[in-house]
Design a protein around this nucleic acid. Sequence first.
DNA 1: TGCAAATGTGAGGATTACTCATGTTTGTAA
DNA 2: TTACAAACATGAGTAATCCTCACATTTGCA
Lengths: 214, 214
Amino acid sequence: MEGRSAVSPQPDGQVASPRRAPSQQRSRERVERMLAAASVLIAEQGSDAMRMGEVAERAGVSIGSLYQFFPDKRAIVWALAERHTTESQACIAAALKDVGDAEGLRQAFSELVDIYYRLFLAEPVMRDIWSGTQADKALRELELADSRANAGFLIAVLRRLRPDADPVALETTAFLVWQMGEAAMRLAISVDREEGDRLVAAYKRMALRELLAE
Amino acid sequence: MEGRSAVSPQPDGQVASPRRAPSQQRSRERVERMLAAASVLIAEQGSDAMRMGEVAERAGVSIGSLYQFFPDKRAIVWALAERHTTESQACIAAALKDVGDAEGLRQAFSELVDIYYRLFLAEPVMRDIWSGTQADKALRELELADSRANAGFLIAVLRRLRPDADPVALETTAFLVWQMGEAAMRLAISVDREEGDRLVAAYKRMALRELLAE
DNA sequence: TGCAAATGTGAGGATTACTCATGTTTGTAA
DNA sequence: TTACAAACATGAGTAATCCTCACATTTGCA
């Protein structure tokens, strides 16, 4: 009924480095246990609801030890995220390494998407961390409903334009096109204006190609 | 140096309704002031860093009055978000209302994207609320860097396949295609499995069409 | 005018991130 | 082996914040 917890009231945005790097075998193992505990708790409850005391308890260490290696709560989440990106980048690089022609790209990319999809499905931690408006399920649902409503307007147009097309396919396309637009926007406003404009223009081209395709 | 604040440790995900709807003129005006104050503070510091005491102070009401109309912190953010989606949906519906043919769609959609883009640029509150991994700037930057790295692998392949193409355009395309993929994944895992699979398949088709275009 | 319902208040309860003084273990050099 | 500094471990305590609640005031209306 209350709610404190969280992440950081300072507007810093920096990730403090581990207060101390574990140099002995013993502490390295303990840090692993802390990360594993955090991973489980994030999967169960989300990173926001994860409590530091619980992480410590589950890892079998004291709260003080936790803070010996992680300067704050965000640092734990960050460490898990960084580990994940490192792994996934290696996987992607490998998949695209030997692509030589268009057909090769088609195959490699298709496999890559499948792998990535399975990875997303299997990693609750990443689901939590990367999910937009992550901390708040209600907001996420509002966002999804909003997207569906907006895609709905597009779908109505498409149905008028192509009454014989498969309605489900139309819906999927419109929904995806719209979602991608929101992704492009979010991205565009977080890079510099010039790149943002380019991205939006590229999105327009891409979206229209798909919307008007056959 | 500390950090409490936040949003909600309960795994509920429900948005409690206003504890009480403002029925008198006086209270309706005060609720408006509360929302306006919250809007400013979110724009300045982000929704996570926004403190309820500060909202109350800025609105010129007591903390108790705030909780009279908003059951918790998230409810304020939610109210602002809902207001925004209502407005933007009306705007989108209007833009697409009279589309009659493909050329009309092309024009209306193009204008719509521009409007939406400007809206995103102008609304810091929505930027904060909709931005993925919103609460944590460091995570958002890690995510962006990860995306750039992954797009980099794609770019390398595209350069090999089409050495004469404009490098900047290639980069933009690859970056966008990759970002859209991540958006599709995030979306796919938050809907049911069947729809998720459809979305991923549609994304593959779309991405390949764009990557292999020309 | 009287009264119930709506509204307003802010000190204080409860929870939680994080600190720090203190104790323990480890590696290492004499 | 022993001494000792550095690394590691601990958990009660501090500070910050969300939210409650008992009580005061204002409003609409019969």
